[in-house]
Amino acid sequence: MAFRIKYMEFIIGVFCVALILTACGQNGSAHKGNGQTEQDITVTDAMGKVTIPNNPRRVLAPNMEDSLVALGVTPAAQWSIGTTVHDYLQPYLKGVPKIEWDLPLEQTIKANPDLIIFSSAASIKKGQYEKYKKIAPTYVFKDAESADWRKQLQVMGQLLGKEEKAKEALADYDAKVKKARADIKAAIGDESAAILWVFGKQYYLFENTRYAANVLYHDLGVAQPDMVKKLPKAETNWSPVSLEALADLDADHIFLVSRPNEAGLEQLKQSSVWKSILAVKKGNVYEMEDPSHWTINGLVASKLTMDKIMESLTK
């Protein structure tokens, strides 16, 4: 009897080990619905090679939450400057805790990420890269991939195992662009438009590649006024234009972007310069009181901007 008991214990033990080994084998080679293997991947980023964990659940990607939302991913914490967050993303990020834009180490540890993503090497505080790596695997975007929201979305899809989702999102966006472009062309023909942002007492005219201007000019094909054509190439540091200089703004339509009650808004509207501008005379000024999606690059932001442009120009 004792022999039989020992023998049965041995058989059960072998069976359990076999089950464990089989499960491990399946975990190492199981496939996701989109055909990708469920395993860690090693990629090359701006800093070298980094191993990305399979199916990361707590992702920190400050100022790139647009791409996460587009992929159906909720970040562990969202970018902020004090109490300021990306307003246009709040329907998707309600209740998500804030983390300061420069990712202080203590806040980063508290967020308990299993993947940290930076938009560039320049966005990391000097000397802290190795410290972030000790908290969680850390991916640093190459500048060219980060600056182009389409490339950013595709890379983010690769990192998070959502490449098919990224492809679908881009295809849907392109289909939306195609229809909107045709509708706007039918509505305003070759008339031009400009985007003017009022921040504090400063006025910023969007160059043709600055944020929402990419949607207006390149996606939707709206004509650029001469003043925009003559602007210098968009650089990281954005220079305001004087109120007097706006006298040369020859656009048929103007998107006036600002928060309500900005100091420079009333000054602008009361000025003789503003009243002399073509679009103002024609009654073609569209006030946009949520500047957040106009002043960032991203798929979600671009779709919102496109909707606002469509509503304004085709009504």
Rank of each mutant, 00 (worst) to 15 (best):
I11W: 02
I11K: 07
L19R: 00
G28H: 13
E38D: 07
Q39L: 01
D40H: 07
A46M: 09
A46F: 10
K49L: 07
V50S: 06
V50K: 10
N54E: 14
N55K: 15
R58C: 09
R58Q: 11
V59M: 05
A61T: 09
P62Y: 05
P62V: 03
N63S: 11
D66I: 09
L68S: 01
G72T: 03
P75G: 02
Q78R: 12
S80L: 01
I81H: 06
H86F: 14
D87Q: 13
P91I: 11
Y92P: 00
Y92N: 04
Y92K: 05
G95R: 14
V96D: 01
V96H: 00
P97N: 10
E100G: 07
W101A: 05
E106T: 12
E106N: 11
I109K: 10
P113W: 06
F118T: 01
F118W: 14
A122I: 02
K126H: 15
Q128D: 14
Q128A: 07
K131D: 14
K133A: 15
K134P: 10
K134Y: 02
I135H: 04
A136W: 10
P137E: 04
Y139W: 08
Y139K: 09
V140P: 08
A144M: 12
R150Q: 15
Q154A: 10
G157W: 01
K167R: 14
L170H: 05
A175D: 11
K176F: 15
K178M: 06
D183P: 05
K185I: 05
I188R: 13
I195L: 13
V198R: 07
Q202L: 09
Y204A: 06
E207D: 13
A213S: 15
N214S: 12
N214P: 04
V215K: 09
D219I: 13
D219M: 14
V222Q: 10
A223C: 09
Q224D: 04
M227I: 08
M227Y: 08
V228F: 02
K229D: 09
P232F: 01
W238M: 07
V241M: 09
S242Q: 10
L243P: 03
E244K: 12
A247K: 11
L249F: 07
N261G: 06
N261R: 12
G264F: 12
L265E: 08
E266T: 13
K269P: 13
W274K: 04
W274E: 14
S276L: 04
S276P: 11
L278M: 04
V285N: 03
V285C: 03
Y286L: 01
Y286V: 02
M288Q: 15
N297V: 03
D307T: 13
K308W: 10
I309C: 07
S312P: 05
L313C: 13
